[in-house]
Amino acid sequence: MSRIDRRFAALRAEGRAALVTYITAGDPDFDTSLAALRSLPEAGADIIELGMPFTDPMADGPAIQLAAQRALKGGQTLARTLALVRAFREGDADTPIILMGYYNPIYIYGVDRFLADAKEAGVDGFIVVDLPPEEDEELCLPALRAGLAFIRLATPTTDDARLPTVLANTRGFVYYVSITGVTGTAVPDFEAVAAQVARIKRHTDLPVAVGFGVRSGAHAAAIARGADGVVVGSAIVGALASSLDAEGHATARTVPAVHALVRELAEGVRSVAKQNA
């Protein structure tokens, strides 16, 4: 059983949804990013999405675009992102880590080498925004063969006819994108989201997590009622950004700012008891 499957099974037994938190690797520098990463499980994160910075994040809103720019300016590379995971794993053997980003840096690193190095570093799976099922031969199928999860995004435009295509090679969980749009720009309609999650669950036994636009503990609680997981990215990255000094460098407030918001989100998720146990 993979770390992701074990984590969802444990939470099901506990009767609550998972809190999935996103930060960008190397934002604003390697050491701060590692400290922030280490603080996430303690603050109540159940699963970590770690962003691989890219110059052209087409599906991301301003908060995550700026995070990627800060990280790249700070010298982050894909190799250093894997080093970050390796360092995190020294102190945490249980929290699943999913690398999230765009395909080109992976393609240039080399798919086989990347999968081997990621597995060795302690990565559990991938979300690669610009690899739809039509391009599964590129990374998804090699990742599955290497025993790593490939988490697919389902969106409001993914209708019932297309859902089986999207779900076919998905492992770990399904990430439902709650809005049509880029990350962190709009607040979803929570009732509509619950109906969409129910629709996806008619097609799969995988857990369904929901993200894009979740900003507070109250939002997290609202999503947790209808979904197996709540994904929060832009709000956390935004909290980190607002703690930086005028030059964009980390301050003593940076890690605490991330920690405080994740704690609030965790309380929101934990306030909703579920019947799944």
Partner: peptide, 11 residues
């Protein structure tokens, strides 16, 4: 190829 986000695939 077709290297786009899922939201755009149906489009």
């Amino acid at each position: 190829g077709r290297f786009v986000a899922e939201t755009l695939m149906p489009l």
